[in-house]
Design a protein around this nucleic acid. Structure first.
Length: 154
DNA sequence: GCCAACGTTGGC
DNA sequence: GCCAACGTTGGC
């Protein structure tokens, strides 16, 4: 069992959207490192922190809830759709470039655990998301960090 | 809106 | 295979 942090722009696809949908394919990832995590490392049942990037004063950047992985890797269909923002002519249906997993809603935090809290907390020292220039949209998180953040959000 | 950090592309 | 140019991410 592994733990992960996945980023979404809060005004693009939020934890509330996931709560409403219950389950969603984590589409639109166009970064090879993140793709490789979904293809090779992420397993059904893995736990995920749901992070909102590009926050505002009202909805600050941070972790807003948790989710779990609910499918094996499969093709990202948005790459085949010419009208989609994430269309990629190089990705073929018989050999898709872009692979994703489905994630299911688990919980929404009472209060978000903001990035500034995460940076301030000594127990979370070294967590990838708090490091400068950490743009990776899917990141591994240690079990300890996952549980600590989950407890902060209760 | 700015800008630093990073990933990708393409010329050589 | 190097590296400059460009595009994107994301915190502030």
């Amino acid at each position: 069992m592994n733990h992960w942090l996945i980023k979404s722009e809060g005004d693009c696809y939020s934890i509330d959207d996931l709560k409403k949908d219950k389950k969603t394919p984590w589409s639109g990832i166009r970064n090879f490192q993140a793709r490789n995590f979904m293809r090779d490392s992420i397993k059904v049942g893995d736990k995920v922190l749901f992070y909102h990037s590009n926050g505002t004063k009202e909805n600050p950047t941070g972790v807003y809830g948790t989710a779990k992985v609910s499918s094996k890797p499969h093709a990202d269909m948005t790459a085949f759709d010419k009208k989609d923002d994430h269309y990629d002519a190089k990705s073929k249906k018989e050999n898709p470039t872009w692979i994703l997993v489905d994630v299911s809603f688990v919980s929404k935090f009472k209060k978000p655990v903001t990035l500034s809290q995460i940076k301030f907390e000594p127990k979370l020292k070294g967590i990838m998301v708090a490091q400068k220039g950490s743009r990776l949209s899917i990141q591994p998180v240690s079990k300890e960090h996952f549980e600590f953040i989950t407890n902060m959000g209760k």
